[in-house]
Design a binder for these strands. Structure first.
Length: 533
RNA sequence: GGGCCUGUAGCUUAGUCAGGUAGAGCGACGGACUCUUAAUCCGUCGGUCGCGGGUUCGAACCCCGUCAGGCCCGCCA
C-alpha cells in the first residue's frame, strides 16, 4: 500500500475528521527541502479524502520565531534585530537592508517577504493550505490557556522535558519567553510570575512584565508546538527527521500535548532532500534550489511525483542534471500505463501487485488537480530536450511529435517552455547538449571499421549537391547506404564520428539542416583526409 | 556516552509491520522495425539482500552483535 494510504488508514481508525499540519519558519529563502514537508502533508490529505475522510491541510507560519543571526544575504544593520520576531521586523530590500518604509506603510514583514514566493510555488503545485500565522495567534490570545497551564506548573513541564530528552534545563528556565520593551526575545530573564504577567529583566537590566494572554512573548519551541496542536485541533503532522528522533521535540511534545488537553497528532517523519553532490541544502552556503527555480525547469507534476514515489523515510537527492531527465521520463512512462488492466492479470505475484498499486497511487498523487488524470505526452523528456535544441519554433517541435490527443498540446507547450529555460541554465547536462565538432576527432574516426571509414568521403560527395533541408540530407544519407551492401547503420556511425565525435547520437538531418552547409562539408572533408592518412 | 533512521543488481529502488523459491525501472548487451540509430517494440544478462552469529522445517524480514552514512539528546526548524 502507498505510504499516504497507510497514513490515511491510520487516521481513519482515529476518527472521521482530520486537520493535517505542516509548519516552517520563514527565516530565509525557502528551498525544495521545504516542499517535501508541504507535499507530504498534502498527499496525506488527499489519501484521507480518497478513503472517505474529511481532511484539511494547514500551514503554520512560524513568524513568532526570532531572527537568529545576520544571514549572508542580509545587511549588517540586521544585527540590531536579532532576537526580534520574524513577523515583526521589516523585510530585506534588494540590497539586503531592512525596508522600513514598506514595513511601516504596508506592514510588509520579513516573514511575508520569504513566504510570498513559496506560496506561489505551492499554488503551482496545486497546494493551497489554510495559513496559520503564529505571531498573530499569540497576539490574539490563542495560546493563553496552554501558556497559563505551563506557567502555573513549570516543575511538571520541566520534569517531562528533562526526563524525555535526557537533558538538564538551566536553573532559571521558565516555560515562557517574554518580549522586552524593544521586542527582543534574547537575553530576557524571568524573575517572577503572577498570572497573567511574567516579570522579567532584559539584557540591559531594564525590568518589565509580559502578559501571556496577549502575545508579549512566546512559549519555547518544545511547548509552542504541542500547544499549537491543541489550538488548531491537529490530528496529523509530518515533520523532518530532526524532530522525530527519540528525545526530540515530538517525544516531549507528545506528553505535553496531553497536559494541554489534546491527543497528540499522528506523526510521520520524513528524510531531508539534498542536492546531488552537494550534501544538505543550506541557505548560508548558497547551494539551494528554490521551489520557484525548480518549477521553471520541471512541471509541477514531476516535482510531486518525486515526493509521491519516494517513501518519506528515504533521503531524496535532487539532481538538476541527468537525474531530472530520468525522473521526468519515469513519470512520463508511469502516467501512460494502464494500471487497471495490469492489475487484472491473475498471474501477478503479491509483490508485483503491490508494486503496481504503489506506482498507480504515486501517479494519482502527482496530478496538480486532485482527481484529474495527467496526460502522458508521447514524447520523453530526453527526446523533447533534443527537439528543443534542434528545431526552431514551437510549431516545428510540435509537428515533430505526432500526437493524436488534441488536448495534450497545452501540456507539451508548457513542457517546452520549461525545457528551454532548463537548456539555457547551467543545470542542463552536457550529455544532452547537441554540439557539432569544430575540428575532426581522431579518436572517433579511428574507431570506425574499415567499411565505415570510406563512408566519410562518400557522405561529403553525396551532400555536396543536395538541397540543404531535412529531406535532401536524408536522401543523401540513403544514397550512400545504397552503395554495395553498406547499411544505414554504417552511414550513421560514420556521420556521428566525423560530425559529433560520437558513436551514436540524435536525429542528424534536422540538426544539419540548421547548420551552414559549407561548415559541415568542410568538417567532413577534413575528417575524410584524416581517415586517408 | 544514550537513542532513532538508512544500507537489497552498475544506478534508483519494492519487499521488512503480519517469515514461505528476491520483484521493478534505468543503464548495459542482443534483436526487430526494410528504417535515422539519444525515437519505438521485443528479448537477455545481472543480486553471498552491509557483515557475523542466533531462533526456525524455512530469515532480506524476528533476536543479539558489528561496520558504514545521516540525525537527535544545546539553540533552531
Amino acid at each position: 500500500m502507498h505510504w499516504a494510504d497507510v497514513m490515511a488508514e491510520r487516521l481513519g481508525r482515529r476518527g472521521p475528521r482530520h486537520i493535517v499540519a505542516t509548519g516552517i519558519t520563514p527565516s530565509g529563502e525557502f528551498h525544495i527541502g521545504h516542499i517535501r514537508e508541504i507535499l507530504t502533508g498534502d498527499m496525506i490529505v488527499r489519501a484521507a479524502k480518497h478513503a472517505g475522510l474529511e481532511a484539511e491541510l494547514v500551514f503554520v507560519v512560524d513568524n513568532a520565531d526570532p531572527l537568529r543571526k545576520v544571514y549572508p544575504f542580509l545587511d549588517e544593520s540586521y544585527s540590531q534585530l536579532i532576537g526580534h520576531q520574524l513577523g515583526a521586523i521589516p523585510a530585506p530590500d534588494a540590497e539586503g537592508k531592512p525596508d522600513w518604509n514598506r514595513f511601516e506603510q504596508d506592514g510588509w514583514t520579513y516573514g511575508d517577504h520569504f513566504l510570498a514566493p513559496f506560496l506561489d510555488a505551492l499554488a503551482q503545485l496545486g497546494v493551497r493550505p489554510r495559513l496559520l500565522p503564529n505571531l498573530q495567534a499569540y497576539r490574539s490570545g490563542q495560546f493563553a490557556s496552554a501558556a497559563k497551564y505551563a506557567c502555573d506548573n513549570p516543575d511538571e513541564i520541566r520534569e517531562i522535558i528533562e526526563r524525555v530528552s535526557g537533558r538538564e534545563l538551566p536553573a532559571g528556565w521558565f516555560p515562557w519567553q517574554p518580549l522586552d520593551a524593544k521586542g527582543n526575545l534574547d537575553g530576557v530573564k524571568v524573575t517572577g510570575y503572577d498570572y497573567p504577567l511574567v516579570h522579567f529583566v532584559d539584557a540591559e537590566g531594564t525590568r518589565g512584565s509580559s502578559d501571556i494572554t496577549k502575545g508579549d512573548g512566546k512559549l519555547p519551541w518544545r511547548l509552542d508546538w504541542p500547544a499549537k496542536w491543541g489550538i488548531n485541533a491537529i490530528t496529523c503532522e509530518p515533520f523532518g527527521k530532526d524532530h522525530g528522533a527519540a528525545g526530540g521535540s515530538y517525544a516531549t511534545g507528545k506528553e505535553l500535548s496531553v497536559l494541554f488537553g489534546h491527543e497528540p497528532p499522528e506523526p510521520l517523519t520524513y528524510e531531508w532532500i539534498s542536492l546531488r553532490g552537494q550534501g544538505a541544502m543550506s541557505s548560508s552556503a548558497g547551494n539551494t534550489v528554490g521551489p520557484v527555480e525548480a518549477l521553471q525547469l520541471v512541471p509541477p507534476e514531476i516535482l510531486r511525483f518525486l515526493v509521491a514515489n519516494t517513501k518519506p523515510k528515504k533521503a531524496i537527492e535532487f539532481d538538476t542534471g541527468m537525474g531530472l531527465v530520468k525522473l521526468a521520463d519515469e513519470f512520463e512512462r508511469s502516467s501512460g500505463r494502464d494500471f487497471e488492466s495490469e492489475l487484472k492479470d491473475e498471474g501477478l505475484s503479491r509483490r508485483q501487485r503491490v508494486q503496481v498499486e504503489d506506482v498507480q497511487a504515486a501517479v494519482r498523487l502527482s496530478s496538480v488537480v486532485d482527481g484529474s488524470t495527467t496526460h502522458a505526452t508521447s514524447s520523453t523528456f530526453r527526446h523533447l530536450a533534443l527537439l528543443a535544441q534542434v528545431k526552431h519554433g514551437d510549431e516545428e517541435v510540435l509537428s515533430a511529435i505526432t500526437t493524436e490527443d488534441g488536448d495534450a498540446k497545452d501540456v507539451l507547450l508548457d513542457r517546452l517552455r520549461r525545457m528551454r529555460t532548463w537548456i539555457a541554465s547551467s543545470h542542463f547536462p552536457d550529455e544532452l547538449r547537441v554540439v557539432l565538432l569544430d575540428e575532426p576527432s581522431p579518436d572517433a574516426l579511428n574507431a570506425l571499421s574499415p567499411t565505415q571509414q570510406p563512408l566519410v568521403a562518400a557522405l561529403k560527395e553525396a551532400l555536396l549537391h543536395v538541397t540543404w533541408d531535412e529531406q535532401g540530407i536524408t536522401d543523401a544519407m540513403k544514397s550512400v547506404a545504397g552503395l554495395d551492401g553498406v547499411g544505414m547503420r554504417d552511414v550513421y556511425r560514420a556521420a556521428y564520428a566525423s560530425l559529433m565525435g560520437l558513436e551514436k547520437g540524435p536525429r542528424l538531418a534536422p540538426i544539419l539542416a540548421n547548420c551552414k552547409k559549407v561548415e559541415i562539408l568542410g568538417l567532413l572533408e577534413k575528417s575524410a583526409n584524416h581517415v586517408l592518412q
